[in-house]
Every structure is written in structure tokens, then in C-alpha cells.
Design a protein around this nucleic acid. Structure first.
Lengths: 128, 128
DNA sequence: CTGTATCCTCATTGATACTG
DNA sequence: CAGTATCAATGAGGATACAG
């Protein structure tokens, strides 16, 4: 199970670590899962396909962690074949606020980032 | 060296993964380093002490990665004993925007998060 | 003081096989 | 279909020693 740091009252204070967001536990996939669920509920297999490369094991673990943190709900329909649907909670949807802020930052500063990397590699070449 | 996913033009689009922010590479420490540098330049040892538990190796690696991404500068003064100062760039400072947004989200929804975890553990106890 | 060089451990992830 | 169980691989991170 993906563990987060313990939550204390001042956890989100001035020295808040990254793992503030529930989605940063298992960050590699949870962010993408959020986007897959943005348009509405999805089944296990409907998540697994677009998340190319994820294994059932990791997907299940990540979904459990997100359920534990209250960002999505898991609904198992009693049918055959079985059908399980995952849906974002209002709490989960509220995460799009900071997520979009991060994406906006990225788009805004993409040129700076690319320039910084190029400059850095340039410096490496000069040393070599 | 901490590697980030390759940057493409649409990297920060609707399906932007978490690693959008340079600070999410080596996330365990880089977020805290940002906060340590928020008030002004700091020396290597002035970072190492407040970041209790970090080793010189990991601190050096993380600082290099952040330098590569253009969020801070490294200035080695030619003295004895050596003195090296790290300082945030304007690009680095701009990261406080999304970082503060994330922290604000956390403070705003702390009660929801704690309630969700309690409910989840409650469910586990009922199963057992 | 500010690192680098090795070696090592542990957790996350991946691969594969299997089940209700 | 929607997982779980098991084992293997990978890599960030830590311990320690040493160098400029």
C-alpha cells in the first residue's frame, strides 16, 4: 500500500513537503488516473488501456490508495462478468485546481526550462 | 543524476503528468530545499542542517538537478575554506505559485482528508 | 567546508501466473 | 472482468570513507 506522511495540523504550513497532495503518493500514475476520470466514471479496464504500460497490480494498488484518501469511490456491481466503476469524489475534483495551476506553470515556463537544460548541457560540453 | 521525463511541446497539456514541475524530480527533498532558499541565498551546510537526515551525496545531487533545471544558481567563492552559495532564480521563485496553491488546497481540505482515512480504516476493521 | 566515490539497502515497479 | 500472489528487476536513497 502506498503510504503518505502522517498528516498533522501544520502539515500544509510554510514547510509543507511535496507529498501534500494525495496524488503525489504513487505520483507516477495517480495524476494520469485523475485525468482519465475527469470526464466521468470509468471501469478498471477502461483505465488500464489508456494508461499504457501500467500493470493490473499497480493500478489496483494506486486506486486503493486514492480511495483511502477520499479522492475517488469504488463501486462493485454484482453482475457476471463483474463490473467495477471508479468515480471522482467532490474532494477529488477539487484537486484539479492545484493540478491545473501546476500545468499552467509548466506551459508558461516551458521555454525557460528548455533553455536552462540546453545551457546546462552546454556547460558540460565546455568542461569536457 | 535525477532524470525528468523528456519535455515536449504538449507535455503540459491536458494529460500532463505530475513530473511537470522540476521539483518533482527528487521530490522528497527539492520541495523543502525550495522553502529553505525562499528567504535568500544559503550555503551548502546551511541547507544540510535544517534538512535533517539528508546526506551530502543526496543534497549535492538534488542541487545539481535543480541547477540543471534553472530553478537555482550555484556560486563557488574562491576562498579557503571553500564557500558555495545557492540562490533561487526568478524561474525558481515562480514555482512558489503552484507550490502555494498545493499547500492552500491541503490546508483547505485537511479535515476531509483525515475523515476519509478514518472512514477507510473503519471499513477495514469491519471486514476483519 | 564542500563535496565525490563506493557500496548497500529497501521500496516501488514490472512480469508472470493464477482465481472468483 | 477484475483482480491477487509471487518473484525479479530497478533505482532512489543511505552509510561510510575519502579528497580538494
Amino acid at each position: 500500500m502506498i503510504e503518505l506522511e502522517p498528516l498533522t495540523a501544520d502539515f500544509f504550513g510554510p514547510h509543507c513537503p511535496v507529498p501534500a497532495l494525495p496524488i503525489t503518493g504513487g505520483a507516477k500514475w495517480s495524476w494520469k488516473i485523475m485525468r482519465c476520470l475527469e470526464a466521468g466514471p470509468r471501469r478498471f479496464s477502461e483505465l488500464k488501456v489508456p494508461l499504457r504500460g501500467i500493470t493490473a497490480k499497480v493500478l489496483a494498488e494506486t486506486l486503493r490508495a486514492m480511495e483511502r484518501d477520499g479522492v475517488l469511490t469504488r463501486t462493485a456491481h454484482d453482475e457476471n462478468p463483474p463490473r467495477v466503476e471508479y468515480e471522482l469524489t467532490p474532494l477529488g475534483r477539487s484537486l484539479f485546481g492545484p493540478m491545473d495551476a501546476a500545468c499552467a506553470w509548466g506551459r508558461e515556463h516551458l521555454a525557460d526550462l528548455l533553455a536552462a537544460r540546453e545551457a546546462y548541457e552546454q556547460g558540460e560540453r565546455e568542461v569536457a
